[in-house]
């Protein structure tokens, strides 16, 4: 491989670093998307298989369809807030503060659902078990939502605190990170909608 060398220091421009970070986040989204695909596959596979008619045994209560959608509303608002704040810089700190609060509320609501699952039954010895494959699958969607809440809240809190401090190293790179965060916010919104859509099929 023939080469020649140019004289300049090894220092990638913030533009290059920003593009690199965007690609990295998008690849992680592919991995997370594959995870979501696998749990959606599990849901519809077991639902359609309905082994021993135990997808949703008789008398087992479920969450309402609306509650599946309510729980992902914070993701949609975070996405919108971020889009708005990208157009108007002065709104960035309040938008991220609002997003963080909404995500904490969303996480609490998801936890509240987990603590009040209507489909957990008790066997003859009083031991709890998840009655039906619907119940088993629902818990993994709740866990995935919770994971998204934690990661997204970490990002919004970080952007909020960094916005407050203001004395950041590189404004161009900081701008890129706002955009990169937008890729993640878009994904968790899409992932949330897919989750809510899937769990609406009982």
């Amino acid at each position: 491989m023939a080469t020649h060398t140019e004289f300049h220091v090894h220092h990638d421009s913030p533009e290059k670093v920003g593009r690199r970070e965007r690609l990295g986040v998008r690849l992680l989204i592919v991995a997370d998307g594959s995870f979501l695909f696998a749990i959606i596959f599990s849901w519809f596979y077991l639902r359609n298989l309905n082994v021993n008619n135990a997808w949703l045994p008789k008398g087992v209560k479920t969450f309402s369809t609306a509650s599946s959608w309510w729980v992902i509303v914070p993701f949609i608002i975070v996405f919108i807030a971020h889009r708005v704040s990208m157009r108007n810089r002065s709104l960035r700190v309040p938008a991220m503060a609002l997003s963080t609060v909404l995500l904490i509320i969303g996480a609490w609501y998801q936890w509240h659902q987990v603590c009040n699952m209507p489909f957990v039954a008790q066997d003859a010895n009083g031991r709890p078990f998840y009655n039906g494959a619907y119940a088993s699958n629902w818990i993994i969607f709740a866990g995935t939502n919770m994971f998204h809440y934690i990661i997204t809240a970490f990002i919004t809190l970080g952007l909020f605190l960094r916005g407050l401090r203001g004395n950041l190293l590189d404004p161009v790179l900081e701008e890129w990170r706002q955009r990169v965060a937008g890729s993640w916010f878009t994904w968790v919104m899409i992932g949330g909608i897919l989750s809510a859509f899937t769990t609406s099929f009982k």
């Binding site: 599990s42 596979y45 077991l46 298989l49 309905n50 082994v51 021993n52 008619n53 135990a54 997808w55 949703l56 045994p57 031991r127 709890p128 078990f129 998840y130 009655n131 039906g132 494959a133 619907y134 119940a135 088993s136 699958n137 818990i139």
Partner: peptide, 17 residues
């Protein structure tokens, strides 16, 4: 750990999954 039934046919699971 928490007695879900992804792979337990008694509660609607399947080893094929």
């Amino acid at each position: 750990t928490i007695s879900t039934g992804f792979y337990d046919a008694n509660v609607g699971g399947s080893g094929w999954l």
